[in-house]
Design a binder for these strands. Structure first.
Lengths: 289, 289
DNA sequence: TCCATTGAATGGGTGATCCATTTAATAATT
DNA sequence: AATTATTAAATGGATCACCCATTCAATGGA
């Protein structure tokens, strides 16, 4: 801040002139074997470089959760970029769940941890963009849950069973009081608890992301048609009992048959699986991160 | 652009004054039951709102892959924000794989599709941040591959088998010529082909993201110790033969025993599973998106 | 001791301005 | 007429110089 260099382009700090790259790939001039690599679509930009460097520091362990990056103004100067460009990078990393930006003195960019919801966003984006289909998502969910049940059956602890019991209790109440949409929320929780019971956060994240989206369709269906899965709580109780007995085969069988029943229920109404319907609904819910 | 409004704050276009929100949650004033919700950590910012709106348009199908957003200057004016802030949002969405920004006249922000690599980034970030562990990743990989083998066994087509055969061929050549690191690259491809053979992009993405990271550890191990899995190509050939016979049980058994053997090999060298080692290696590879 | 005030640091945001790239239209050349 | 070079406009990339709102520690008065 003190050794402020000349007004324009003080860039010669740490970034070795990002402009003027990889020209010279003149198509006619090269008589060489011409490697089959295509040049990247768009040139490297400052904010990409910054994101990469910060990620590098994270991967190498130089930056750890809880650490604070230098203030925007300082860091921008260190990197030899304008504050605006730095902010583009910081915002991107914040959206990626890597940083958290906090205002005020003692504020700054802090390295985050524990955010397991980014995969949901990725999954949602891919669905919106048509990169993946609802069918693929449903199929993946049913199959991944096989795995979840197997692992949960082995690894679930008393606390997990208690949480599942409590959840089923809430489901009962919601059913009795006719709060069908709350019941859907309970279902979402049920799978979240089950996923956590695997003891594997990677698998939990995967199943959460897929379940999150699935539940929107269920929500939309229930909200529009008013029909709901019959005997849901009973089925769940039976399932949890099997889980308690550590009876893997039975637990998987019960879960799978339930999931397929739900799937049939959803599919019997064409259009209920439409993206727009499901996405328009459930906005006020806990959907927000 | 023509009806350029007055120089300062023409903000009353579409954004209803983003400043001054949700005050009034005075801690002392509320004698009410005090709902157990905590107010969000940081206030809503313009770029978040913009990202959300664009994602909303995507989810609703108003924006589709290939569509072009208005030019930055125009869109900024429409939204009633400065161009800088809009760019923060656009950069974030580009990093998320939702948009692609292209320079020049006829350039602009185009809605992307088909990018299945975002999940890899998420997984990598979570590992760097310590949100997930290497152990969880390995366990998830082994279990998810059960599923992949089962689905691939049912769904694989001739083209998939051919691709697997060709891959094994390359593995043989790399082995014969002692190019051990190329062999690791072949392994990465092998699992990618296998994942694609499931016919389910969601599952393929999941296994790709997990395999991608796993292979860095293998790469680091091979690069440092020089030891490599013996009889790799033979094992693969046997596996693919079983796959061709659609013998699910055998295929799963073979894959699992192989994965566990690799796992043991990796674990026998403490420190080989360290993050830093694995991440420092394999930079020049195809790791780049 | 307690509470109000102040001020500095920080992120949030703006607007003007310039650069580099890309493309289409135009002019010059053959 | 066809080809090639030039030009101009639109667009994203980047910078600078500000200003505002929030936060929090230091200060000072009751």
């Amino acid at each position: 801040m003190s050794p402020k260099s000349s007004p324009h382009t003080p860039a010669s700090l740490r970034r070795p002139s990002p402009k003027r790259r990889e020209r010279g790939s003149d198509l006619r001039a090269s008589g060489a074997p011409a490697p089959p690599t295509f040049r990247p679509i768009h040139t490297r930009r400052a904010f990409e470089e910054i994101c990469e460097r910060i990620r590098e520091q994270l991967a190498l362990g130089v930056l750890k959760p809880g650490d604070k990056l230098p203030a925007e103004r300082d860091l921008a100067q260190q990197l030899g970029v304008s504050r605006n460009v730095l902010r583009e990078a910081l915002r991107s990393l914040e959206m990626a769940g890597v940083l958290r930006l906090q205002k005020g003195v003692k504020g700054g960019a802090f390295v985050q941890t524990g955010d397991t919801s980014r995969m949901n966003v990725v999954m949602q984006d891919m669905l919106s963009l048509g990169t993946i289909s609802v069918r693929e998502l449903s199929e993946a969910r049913i199959n991944v849950l096989d795995l979840v049940v197997r692992l949960a059956c082995v690894n679930a602890r008393q606390a997990d069973f208690a949480a599942l019991d409590a959840n089923i209790e809430r489901t009962d109440v919601a059913t009795a009081e006719g709060r069908l949409l709350d019941r859907v929320e309970c279902s979402r929780e049920f799978y979240k608890i089950l996923a956590a019971a695997t003891g594997n956060k990677v698998i939990a994240m995967i199943v959460d992301s897929v379940t999150e989206i699935h539940m929107r369709f269920v929500y939309a269906k229930v909200a529009s048609s008013g029909v709901a899965m019959p005997r849901l709580a009973e089925r769940r109780r039976q399932f949890v009992a099997t889980l308690r007995e550590r009876n893997v085969a039975s637990a998987i069988r019960l879960m799978r048959s339930h999931l397929e029943a739900v799937q049939r229920m959803l599919e019997q109404d064409p259009g209920a699986m439409s993206l727009q319907v499901a996405l328009a609904e459930m906005q006020p819910g806990i959907t927000r991160r």
